[in-house]
Design a protein around this nucleic acid. Structure first.
Lengths: 216, 216
DNA sequence: TAGATTGTTAATCGATTAACAATC
DNA sequence: TAGATTGTTAATCGATTAACAATC
C-alpha cells in the first residue's frame, strides 16, 4: 500500500506491536504471523497486516514477519531509531514515579531534564537529574534538542506550563493534568489523566442487585 | 433516544463532560449549551447532544443544559453517585503517586486498600493506608466490597496479580503495566501504560531537516 | 413573536473485517 | 506440489457530523 494519511488508531497500535515484538525477540523467536500477533494482542489479523502495509511490505507471503526486521522498521516509523530527549515538568510524586521509567523507555527515549516552579524543589535530585527552575526551561530545551514534554503539574498550572513549553519549541505533550489544554494546531497533545479512565471504568461495573436495568 | 448499546467512545467522553461541568458549577454557571461545551472540549456539539441523548432528555430546547442537573445525571450514569472503593496493587513509586489522587477523585471513588508482595513494603504506610500482603487481598476485597483495581506492579507480575484480582471478584482493572492482560470476558480492562503513549507521540514529531518525507 | 438550542434522522466519513489472488 | 500467509480490494460496520423540525 504505502503512504496515505495514517490514522491515529493505527499509530497507537504500533507501540503495542513493538512491545510484543521485543518480547518475542528476547525469547529468540525469529518469525511471527499476523495470526499469532492478533491472537496475543486481541486484534484482527487483517487489521495488523493492513496497519503494517501502510508503511511498506514488511512480511513474506507464506512465512510471516521477520521479528528483528519488523522491530527495526517500526522503530524507524515511530522515530525511535534516534535518541529522543523528553522534558518532565512537575517534580511531584507522579513526576518522580515516571522518571523511574527511564529504564523502561531504554535505548532511545529518555527524560533528560526536570523542571518545577516550587522553590524548595529546585536543586533537589530526582534519580540522576537535578530539578531546575522554570526560567531555565527554554534554554535547556534548546540545548538538549528536546521535542517532547510530559506535564505532571497540578490542574491549575497545566495550561500555563503548556504555553511555556510551546513557546520553547516543544512539538508534543503528554499531559497528566486533568484539563483539556489549548494548543495551536501542529502541537500534538495526548491526555494521560487516569482519573478520567477510572471514572469510565465505573460505568462497566455490573448492576447491583438493588438497581436493575434503569431509567435515568 | 434512550438505551441501545452504548459505544466505548461515548462512555470515555462522559467523564470529560463531567469534569468540565464540575468546573462550571464551581464558577456558579447555571446553564450550558452543547455549543459551549463543544468549543471548550474540542468536540462537535452534535456529538455531545447525541452522547447525552443516549441516556435521556437532559436538555431544554432553546435553553441548553442545567449544569447541576446534568452533573447529577452523568454521575448516576457512571455509577459515581455511590461510594466506589478501589484497590491498588503495587506500592512502588507510581502506586504512591496515584494514591495521592484520592483527593482528586474525592466524593465517590477512593483507593481504600493497598497491596504489595515485597515483604519489606508490607506494613509501611502510604498516606493513611497500610500496605497489606497479597494473601489478605481476597478477604479485604470482599469486606470492603471493592470492585475496581489499579495495577502498578512490574510487567512480569501483572498477569499474576490480575489473576488474583479476578479470582477475588474484581470487575474492572486499570492496568499501568506494559502488558496486555488475559482476562475473561466480563472483566473490563483499561490500559494506562504511559510508555506506549509516549512512543506514539514520537510519530508526530516534525521531520528533521536531514530526513525528508520517507521511504521505510 | 424572534432567537436559541435541543433531540433525532439522514448523510457522510472512516475504520474494521472478510475474502482472495499472489507467492513463499 | 500443498500449505501457509501476505498485501490489498471490496464489503461491512460503526462513529461522526449536518440538517432540521420541535419547542423553550
Amino acid at each position: 500500500m504505502k503512504s496515505d494519511k495514517i490514522s491515529e488508531a493505527v499509530v497507537r497500535r504500533l507501540p503495542v506491536y513493538l512491545r510484543f515484538l521485543n518480547d518475542l525477540h528476547k525469547r529468540e523467536i525469529a518469525t511471527v504471523s499476523s495470526q499469532e500477533l492478533g491472537q496475543r494482542l486481541d486484534l484482527n489479523p487483517a487489521q495488523i497486516r493492513k496497519d503494517l502495509a501502510y508503511f511498506g511490505d514488511f512480511g513474506r507471503k507464506g512465512i510471516g514477519y521477520d521479528v528483528p526486521y519488523l522491530i527495526e522498521k517500526i522503530r524507524h516509523i515511530l522515530k525511535l531509531d534516534q535518541q529522543i530527549n523528553v522534558v518532565l515538568v512537575g517534580a511531584g510524586n507522579l513526576g518522580q514515579a515516571l522518571s523511574n521509567y527511564n529504564i523502561y523507555l531504554k535505548d532511545t527515549m529518555k527524560i533528560t531534564a526536570v523542571f518545577d516552579s516550587y522553590p524548595p524543589k529546585i536543586g533537589t535530585k530526582i534519580n540522576t537529574l537535578t530539578v531546575q527552575p522554570m526560567d531555565e526551561l527554554a534554554s535547556t530545551v534548546r540545548e538538549q534538542g528536546i521535542r517532547i514534554a510530559i506535564i505532571t503539574v497540578p490542574e491549575q498550572e497545566a495550561q500555563k506550563v503548556a504555553d511555556i513549553l510551546i513557546e520553547a519549541g516543544i512539538e508534543a505533550i503528554l499531559n497528566f493534568a486533568p484539563v483539556i489544554l489549548k494548543t495551536p494546531s501542529g502541537i500534538r497533545v495526548h491526555a494521560a489523566d487516569f482519573t478520567t479512565d477510572l471514572q469510565s471504568l465505573a460505568y462497566y461495573l455490573h448492576e447491583g442487585k438493588d438497581e436493575e436495568e434503569h431509567e435515568y
